[in-house]
């Protein structure tokens, strides 16, 4: 089993920012159209993880022209260019599949705010990073100027 883990380890990615269920993220992925390769982004709410080592995937959901769209990304796929965390969500469950049934005001996710701990010590809203060696989420402005990116 350990040797199996070692094989998986060489394919794990540690350069992506930490994000959790309920967060609004923008996933930049490389797609190939014929000969050309371009970067496309998909922005939405993370509605669940399927955690399984190197095979871990996550689901992102967004509403596009009134139609719900969900995409599942392999967490360790080399095709993911980068991930930008837009908003931190405050949710109490691991899978947000109820969002498929609701719309409008009910489909809102509360944003995570700094809150005071028991002893009056401010606890930062940022969740503890899931992995080491992670960079903080890049600023939003850094993502904007890239012109080749197209919104799906």
């Amino acid at each position: 089993m350990n040797l199996l883990k070692e094989v998986e380890k060489s394919y794990l990615r540690s350069d992506l920012p930490a994000f959790k269920v309920g967060d609004t993220i923008r996933v930049y992925s490389r797609i190939k159209e014929g000969e050309k390769e371009r970067v496309q982004y998909f922005e939405g709410i993370v509605i669940g993880f399927h955690r399984n080592g190197v095979s871990t995937t996550f689901k992102v959901r967004k509403e596009s022209y009134g139609v719900g769209v969900e995409r599942t990304y392999p967490m360790n796929s080399p095709l993911i260019e980068k991930i930008v965390v837009k908003k931190k969500g405050d949710v109490r469950r691991a899978k947000l599949f109820f969002l498929r049934e609701v719309s409008g005001k009910k489909a809102r996710i509360r944003e995570k705010k700094d809150w005071l701990g028991k002893k009056g010590v401010a606890v930062p809203a940022e969740g503890t990073p899931e992995r080491t060696m992670e960079e903080p989420p890049p600023a939003e402005s850094a993502a904007a100027p890239e012109t080749t990116e197209t919104k799906e």
């Binding site: 089993m1 040797l3 199996l4 094989v7 998986e8 394919y11 490389r30 190939k32 080592g53 190197v54 095979s55 392999p74 360790n76 796929s77 080399p78 095709l79």
Partner: peptide
């Protein structure tokens, strides 16, 4: 036979593999 897992190829595609010692 050590078990199965998946790897990514040069194109980024997922390939199911069996690891054999």
């Amino acid at each position: 036979k050590l078990g199965m897992t998946q790897v990514f190829d040069a194109e980024g595609k997922v390939i199911p593999v069996t690891v054999i010692e």
